[in-house]
Amino acid sequence: MKIAMTVNGKSVSRDVTDNTLLVEYIRDHLRLTGTHVGCDTSQCGACVVHVDGQAMKSCTMLAASAEGAAITTVEGLAKSKDDLHPMQVAFKENHGLQCGFCTPGMIMTATDMVTRYQSQGKELTEDAIRHELEGNICRCTGYHNIVKSIADGASKMTTV
């Protein structure tokens, strides 16, 4: 079936089988390989993208269900090719990544949580960050610097 959606601001359309996952559509058909797959049970969060502005696990969603949706992947987070999103900068400046495999999912989850907290006027405390990361697993960093990165990135993001 033909599935069309907007990915990182561009209209795209691909002919895929009905059982194609959104992550397969993104990785295999659009060749945007920043979105990763680290588990089979929807727990690691390496595949997190934004679907219509909300963080979702692209491994746990069919491409067909995303027909017509606006998707943002890590490749489309920055305003332009030469720019970096403040959260991307924060991960670099706080050494919030090592092997880099979980990083795209972490960054997409991080920007989602900051947007939600800011729009609800809630304080994003360290405890809140750790709780919000429940669906993202990192094996390298012990999370210490990821939590620091997100707090730093949040302070540089203004979404409301």
Binding site: K57, T60, M61, R116, N136
Partner: peptide, 9 residues
Amino acid sequence: IGDPAVRHR
């Protein structure tokens, strides 16, 4: 329930 991404869907 689950995690933020799961709760969104």
